[in-house]
Design a protein around this nucleic acid. Sequence first.
DNA 1: CCCGGCGGCTAACTGCATTAACTAAAAGCT
DNA 2: AGCTTTTAGTTAATGCAGTTAGCCGCCGGG
Lengths: 202, 202
Amino acid sequence: MPRAGLDAATIVAAAAELADEIGFSELTMGQLAERLGVRAPSLYKHIANQDDLHRRIAALAFDEAGAAIGTAIQGRAGRDALAAAAGALRDFVLTHPGRYAATLSVTPTGPDDPIMLAGRRGIGPFGAVLRGYDIPPQDMTHALRAVRSVFHGFANLQASGGFQWSTDIGESFEYLIDLVDRGLRSIADADSAAADPADHHR
Amino acid sequence: MPRAGLDAATIVAAAAELADEIGFSELTMGQLAERLGVRAPSLYKHIANQDDLHRRIAALAFDEAGAAIGTAIQGRAGRDALAAAAGALRDFVLTHPGRYAATLSVTPTGPDDPIMLAGRRGIGPFGAVLRGYDIPPQDMTHALRAVRSVFHGFANLQASGGFQWSTDIGESFEYLIDLVDRGLRSIADADSAAADPADHHR
DNA sequence: CCCGGCGGCTAACTGCATTAACTAAAAGCT
DNA sequence: AGCTTTTAGTTAATGCAGTTAGCCGCCGGG
């Protein structure tokens, strides 16, 4: 029996690829082993169990998505950056549905869960995007959560085939970006309008 | 063996309840049967298989969520209606996590899938909310998709424990509503500003 | 050259969905 | 009422997926 030279990273990579092809929920230890030219029990020498595998796929997906978004917003700001980030996330979800599904399936066990850290890295770029808007520091968390919700929701619905009518999805995406961009600007304007008059009273 | 008087509707109701308690992914035919005081194979006299069960739970959830949102927006309009609808959805997700997860798990088979119809009924109320904003008809679909994405995303992230920092989630929710409200108004304003001057040229 | 550990294997167990074949309660017909 | 037909439930059995246990050969270090 020739050594297969396996290793946790290669297993996770193969699993992610397979999940993208056949769907995350159809991902089975047997199929994964087969693809790696090995028997199923051998996988347990490198990963604890299926749940562990799922978590690792999710962590990988967070890192990859974060990297993709990060490069997409290079040299952009404001609405441009927002559109680029959202587009990158959308592309990621469309080209890697299995990995994306993995990120949805995991429930972090605690605040120091590696998944959490990877997730945080994944969202980092969105924080950079928001820095291009005039957002008061105390609202930053809310804004970040909002942006995250928005694109997460869109990607999610699209990935799960939730859009039924034939109206162009790309147009809807542009509309959504416009909505968020305008919303962020409007809030920023309202805040500065509320702050400026107070200055005049000094 | 006394007849248990089962029936698809009671089975689905019990399954939804059980899913809310133990989690959708932990829902098993055996446990469901046990709760109903019956053996597992008996369930197959009323439902085709587990996938069928999942779809029915999802359909039930769509209907219930739609009804809850519908009553929540009674007599409200504009930002009020938006907040009420979003709050109702959020409450539903928090009180019925199992049912909500069911809606995420199903992939509609076609445009005439009963799931699709239930889903359409479920989002109906959001259409009513949008009617309170000045949205040009050709943008209605986009706006509906956007609103759906936004609150779907927020509910989803909250349900899966995606929010890590301790900043108040209710506040983030208010912020999100504000963002969407302002975004919708801003787009409507821009559209009427673009349309009105054209009128003056007549 | 030997040997210890590591990585992979086979065999076996478990839990779950599902099917087949059977039985008895209910509902209808005469 | 008695007979029949349907049907909701039963037990038994199948198959598959995840996982564990225990074996054994390959490889690197003394």
